[in-house]
């Protein structure tokens, strides 16, 4: 038996955080499985999406935060669109990912989290995505140096790959990253002035 449900674990406090963060009522789910039936990625997940909700309903929060499933969700919104109880499952997945990052839980889908991190760092640095660097850093990070490298020259000659980043949006992105970091570190009561920006 993989899990034993202990009475004390049912509805722990963190469920409320997940519910607030996602804006969803976890209890609403009646486990019909329509989300999983239509999930394009379910075959590659460790548990189907409906079971992520079930784990939360039963208080297996720590287990849920360590699932591959939450990182393999493509946010395609199919589940959200078709849920008969109108639970926005994609939003719950977002909340779980946010919390997992906050808690420093190691992602079982390292490639996905690494990509997200590098992506945001290039956005922070240049304001817009710079593919050359993104792919290069990602391949370095995953020790898979030549992945998709055959495509680069083709794309370049088709005029679809830039060799140098564009800095036009840097100011805006920089301001946002800085401001978001500041309001997150300051308490909700404190008042902070907007940075000079656009």
């Amino acid at each position: 038996m993989k899990h034993v449900i202990k009475r004390e674990q049912l509805r722990p406090d963190i469920i409320q955080t997940i519910e607030e963060l996602s804006g969803q009522d976890i209890k609403s789910c009646y486990q019909c499985g329509k989300c999983s039936a239509g999930c394009p990625i379910a075959a590659d997940m460790d548990v189907p999406p409906n079971q992520v909700i079930r784990q939360l309903q039963l208080g297996f929060v720590d287990e849920a935060l360590r699932l591959k499933t939450i990182w393999l969700c493509a946010s395609c919104e199919t589940c959200t669109t078709r849920c008969p109880r109108e639970v926005d499952l994609a939003a719950v997945m977002d909340a779980l990912r946010n919390i997992a990052i906050q808690k420093g839980i190691r992602s079982p889908e390292r490639a996905v989290t690494l990509f997200n991190k590098i992506f945001l760092s290039t956005v922070k640095r240049y304001g817009r995505v710079f593919e050359m660097e993104l792919i290069g850093m990602f391949n370095t990070g995953t020790l898979n140096f030549f992945k998709d490298m055959t495509k680069a020259p083709k794309l370049f000659f088709k005029g679809r790959l830039k060799l140098f980043p564009n800095f036009t949006g840097r100011k805006m992105a920089n301001t946002v990253f800085k401001d978001v970091k500041r309001i997150k570190s300051s308490g909700p009561e404190e008042n902070s002035e907007p940075s000079k920006g656009i």
Binding site: L21, W71, S75, D94, A95, R97, N98, I101, F115, N116, K117, F119, L120, V123, G127, R128, V129, T168, G169, R170, K171, M172, A173, V176, V180, I183, K184, I198
Partner: peptide, 16 residues
């Protein structure tokens, strides 16, 4: 002077 919308990596990381 538009910037990136944050795409999937942003909403996976931080709702704010």
């Amino acid at each position: 002077d538009w910037s990136c919308c944050g795409s999937t990596p942003a909403h996976c990381t931080d709702e704010l």
